[in-house]
Simulated assay, not measured.
Amino acid sequence: MTPSARYAASIDILDKIIAGAPAERELTIWARGNRFAGSKDRAAIRDLVYDALRNLRSYAHLSGLDGARGIFIGRLIAKNEEINLIFNGQGYGPAGLSDIEQNAVDMQKNDMPYAVQMDIPNWISSKFNYVNNYDILKSRAPIDLRVNLKKITLNSAIAELKKDGIETETSSLVDTALRVRGETRKILQNKLYLNGFIELQDAGSQALVAQLDCPRTGKVLDYCAGGGGKTLAIASLISNDVSLFAYDKNQSRLKDLKLRAQRSSVKVHLLKEDPTTTNNKYDLVIVDVPCSGSGSWRRSPDAKWKLTEDRLNNLMELQSEILQNTSKLVSLGGTLAYMTCSIFSCENEEQINKFVLNNKSWKITNYKNFELSNNSDGFYLATLSKK
Rank of each mutant, 00 (worst) to 15 (best):
S98H: 07
D288H: 00
F370N: 00
I234V: 06
W362E: 02
N155G: 08
P290D: 05
V209S: 05
N366E: 07
S331L: 02
G227K: 11
H61I: 04
A203I: 04
K258V: 12
V49L: 01
K368G: 01
R46K: 15
Y59T: 07
T308C: 11
C346L: 14
G20R: 11
S98C: 07
L312Q: 08
D283P: 04
A95F: 11
T176C: 08
I364L: 11
T277S: 15
S243R: 13
G70W: 03
A9G: 09
T276R: 15
G70F: 02
E321A: 13
V220D: 05
S236E: 04
R54A: 08
N314M: 13
I18M: 14
L271H: 10
G295W: 00
D248R: 03
F370A: 04
A203T: 05
N366P: 04
Y59I: 07
W30L: 00
P215T: 09
Q108K: 15
I100Q: 10
A104L: 04
A21L: 08
Y59N: 11
D15W: 04
I11N: 05
E309S: 12
R25L: 15
L27K: 00
K127D: 08
G74F: 01
V116T: 09
R298F: 04
Q262A: 12
T170P: 01
N122S: 10
G64K: 06
E371K: 10
I120H: 04
L178W: 01
K267H: 12
F370L: 10
V289P: 02
L97E: 00
A225G: 06
T28S: 11
A104P: 02
A52T: 01
L48S: 02
K79A: 10
D135K: 15
W297T: 04
